[in-house]
Each structure stands twice: as structure tokens, then as C-alpha cells.
Design a protein around this nucleic acid. Structure first.
Length: 157
DNA sequence: GCCAACGTTGGC
DNA sequence: GCCAACGTTGGC
């Protein structure tokens, strides 16, 4: 089992949107980065736990926990010229992009901001999220870091 | 809105 | 294969 963090802009798709989606599930479409795709395609398994992170907003941070609900399959939105994530270079005969399904598990009992995570840079050493210039939208979280953040969640109210 | 960091593209 | 230019991400 692997642990993950996925970023979403709350204006586009928030943890509330996921919670209220049919079956509390959604297609994680629109990933157009090879490293992120490879993580989904090669290393994600059904049932893997996922931190749900709000990015590009007033206060970015972890807001909930989800799980991987499918293995990777073709992201058909890459073929739709009207889709925001359309990729003219992706040939339907040789699809370039994939996605997984994500299912809501719970909101974290409190918001864990990026700045708070940075305060624990020592314990979270190597965590991609707090590395400088990080832009990955799908990233692995080590078991140690996962457990540390879950413990952090219980720290305050 | 600014801008640093990054990934991708394309000329050579 | 190199690398400058460009577009995007995302924190602040």
C-alpha cells in the first residue's frame, strides 16, 4: 500500500464537492504531467489513502482524506476539444493521459495548513509538498510522514 | 497581482 | 542534444 497527496483548487473542485459527489466519488481527470501520471499509472492501488489538499487559494493545506477507488484508466477529457485540459497531441489510438477514481473518506478534524506543515520540516524531511518550487499535483507520502501528519491532526482543536 | 520555479517546446 | 523562450503552477 502506498500513501498519496493530491492537490485541488477549491474554486474548481473542493473537498465539499467530493463529499457531495454521487457515490462520494469522482474521476481525477485533467492531470497533464508525466510524473504525476506515472504515479497514478504505476504505483496507485485501489484502497490507497490520499490526503486531499487545497492549493492556489488564500490558505493552502490539507482538508480531508480520500482513497484511490480505481486503477488508472484513460483520461478521455484529453480528446475533447471543448475540455479545459484538451491535449491535441494525445492520439486516441495511443492515449497519453490517465486518471484514477477518488472516493471521499472524511474531512480532517481540523485544517492542516501548508505553513503548519513547514513548521515540522525536520520531521517531514523529504516530503515533496514542502520542497521548494514543488508543482506536482499528485505525489507520494511516506508511511512515516503520513503517520506524523495524522498525529498532527490530533494535536490541537 | 507578483514572481520564482518548473516543465515543455522548438530552433539550431 | 542543448538551451532559450514560453506557459503554467501556486505561494505569498
Amino acid at each position: 500500500m502506498n500513501y498519496w497527496l493530491i492537490k485541488s483548487e477549491p474554486d474548481a473542485f473542493s473537498i465539499d464537492d467530493l463529499q457531495h459527489a454521487p457515490g462520494k466519488k469522482t474521476h481525477w481527470d485533467g492531470v497533464r504531467n508525466y510524473q504525476a501520471r506515472n504515479y497514478m499509472r504505476d504505483s496507485m492501488s485501489v484502497g490507497d489513502p490520499v490526503f486531499f489538499y487545497h492549493s492556489n487559494c488564500a490558505t493552502p493545506g490539507i482538508v480531508g482524506i480520500a482513497e484511490v477507488a480505481s486503477c488508472a484508466y484513460i483520461d478521455h477529457t484529453a480528446f475533447d476539444p471543448n475540455d479545459h485540459h484538451f491535449d491535441a497531441g494525445s492520439d486516441p489510438a495511443k492515449p497519453r493521459w490517465q486518471m484514477v477514481d477518488i472516493r471521499f473518506k472524511r474531512k480532517t478534524r481540523r485544517f492542516i495548513s501548508l505553513s503548519e506543515l513547514r513548521e515540522h520540516a525536520h520531521q517531514l524531511d523529504g516530503f515533496a509538498l514542502i520542497r521548494r518550487g514543488n508543482r506536482l499535483s499528485v505525489m507520494p507520502v511516506s508511511k512515516q510522514h503520513w503517520d506524523f501528519i495524522l498525529a498532527l491532526e490530533q494535536n490541537k482543536t
